[in-house]
Computed example of a mutant assay.
Amino acid sequence: MHDASIRPPKLASRVVSIARLVPVATIATLLGLSAGEACASEPERTNLERWVRQLASPELEGRRGEGARKAAGLIVEEFQRLKLEPLFQGQYVQEVPPAPPVEVLGRNVGAVLRGSDPSLAERCVVVSAHYDHLGVRQGVLYPGADDNASGVAMMLETARCLAGAIEKPKRSVVFLAFDQEESGLYGSRYFAAHSPFAVENIELFITADMIGRSLGGVCGDFFFVMGTEHVPALRPWLTEAAAGRPVRLGILGADLLVLNRSDYGPFRTRKIPFLFFSTGENPRYHAPSDTPETLDYPKLTEISRVIHGVTSRAADAPTLPRWNDRTDNPIEEALTIRDVLRTLDANREKLKINAAQGFVIANALRTLDGVAGRGKVTPAERSLLIQAARVVLMTTF
């Protein structure tokens, strides 16, 4: 597995030992590294897997009810261990009161790594994931390893890496674990409406939901990012963060699926720039078989490192791109859809794609081949692609 973060142990130890005497930027220049590379490690597979196995264990009861309370406690303990500040007026937990149709108390868990630049510290980047799942139903455990222990593991590893960096980020970085995502995004909706700080101070909202498998169980190295249609200047950051890694970045618009499908929704509605990471639905989605041993941990590790890289860059950038009401849908999006549909079509038997679905795929591929040849997609063509993607994805998985 490719690991761009590995350095000779003696070299790494020397960086740490002289850090107090020599500015980090100077160390980085001498070693031929960026400041970020000299300062922090990347998310590690062993830690990610440990968190997934713990969060998806039977003891946490599918992270609903008493199990959700225990999960919130574990996340609080990790924030405390990392010496992160409580986000909610001296508390790590924001209680989410019941409101129809949600009849139980929820608990959002949040912490902040305070920015080092006084002129930017009031601005923040949010890294988030929901920790709730379906619980135990009729005596059957729904562990929720991919949905969404994988995302929480990423968030906690990103927190560990940034909190342990020699040089702290210039902006504040908020780490959020949302409850009740499975109940109509109620936890994130409540947070957005009752934030402990002005939500306008969020310059980038990052969330991940299901990043440990592949779309349909067949789209191998693909992972998808939505949100750049409103902040296209973030695309080069994603491309650079993914460069050289054994994963394949797919840029998509959030309108390809039902809008506001995950916790980015309340922030998208408020026109806050967001990035939503996912590998898509798969045959184990919302099933008792979503267990820790079935995840692709090398892939989860690489995606977590991409998110960590983008977060670090955003936290230190002099300025961040603003929300643009006019959506930008690049040719890369159409090529991503083409390659995904080709993969699905090649696995018709495994996915049990019927004749009607196959017809939709074939028509879409003809359109996409024309788009690829011209290097441009028209609004009418994109509208057809949205319809085709929804028909295929919503009826196949």
Rank of each mutant, 00 (worst) to 15 (best):
H2D: 15
D3V: 10
S5I: 05
R7L: 15
R7F: 14
R14T: 15
V15H: 05
V15P: 00
S17Y: 14
I27Q: 01
L30R: 08
S34N: 08
A35H: 05
E42H: 07
E44M: 14
T46Q: 14
L55T: 04
L55S: 01
S57R: 00
E61H: 09
G65K: 07
G65T: 05
K70T: 08
K70F: 05
A71S: 12
I75T: 05
V76Y: 02
R81N: 13
L82M: 13
L84S: 00
Y92G: 12
V96C: 01
P97D: 01
E103T: 13
G106S: 06
V112C: 14
L113S: 02
L113K: 10
R114W: 06
G115P: 08
G115H: 05
V125I: 15
V126G: 01
Y131Q: 02
H133F: 09
V136S: 01
G144I: 03
R160C: 03
I166H: 06
E167C: 09
R171E: 13
S172D: 00
E181A: 03
E182I: 01
A193I: 12
A193R: 15
I202Y: 06
E203D: 10
I211M: 10
I211A: 02
S214K: 09
L215M: 10
D221Y: 04
A233M: 01
L234M: 13
L238D: 03
G244I: 14
G244L: 12
V247I: 15
L249H: 03
D255T: 03
D255W: 07
D255I: 08
V258G: 13
F267D: 11
K271Y: 09
L275Q: 13
D290I: 07
D290E: 10
T291D: 13
P292E: 10
L300R: 12
L300Q: 09
R305Y: 04
I307H: 06
S312N: 13
W323Y: 01
I331A: 11
R338D: 08
R342G: 09
L344H: 08
D345A: 13
K350R: 15
L351H: 10
G358R: 06
V360R: 01
I361Q: 08
L365N: 13
G375S: 12
T395F: 05
